[in-house]
């Protein structure tokens, strides 16, 4: 019943791990250069969006 979703722009992502450092739910993982989101754990709080230096993350209504 989720109405929001975290979107990754992979062309902007510099796989730096900033988003991982602020995630309380451990909903993301950096697999080398690939950012993986566990949608079951992500509650779209938006902290990772704010910390991303590259503007690669956004929350969109689904």
């Amino acid at each position: 019943m989720q109405s929001k979703r975290l979107i990754i722009n992979r062309f902007k992502c510099a796989y730096c791990g900033a988003c991982i450092s602020v995630c309380k739910n451990n909903a993301n993982e950096l697999v080398e250069t690939f950012l993986r989101i566990d949608e079951n754990k992500c509650n779209c709080c938006g902290l990772c969006v704010k910390v991303c230096p590259m503007n690669a993350l956004s929350i969109e209504e689904v």
């Binding site: 510099a14 900033a18 450092s21 602020v22 995630c23 902290l47 910390v51 991303c52 230096p53």
Partner: peptide, 13 residues
């Protein structure tokens, strides 16, 4: 607990 708050981190490029 090592999770950082938004005032405990520098976002860098």
């Amino acid at each position: 607990d090592t999770t950082l708050k938004l005032n405990e981190v520098e976002s860098c490029v």
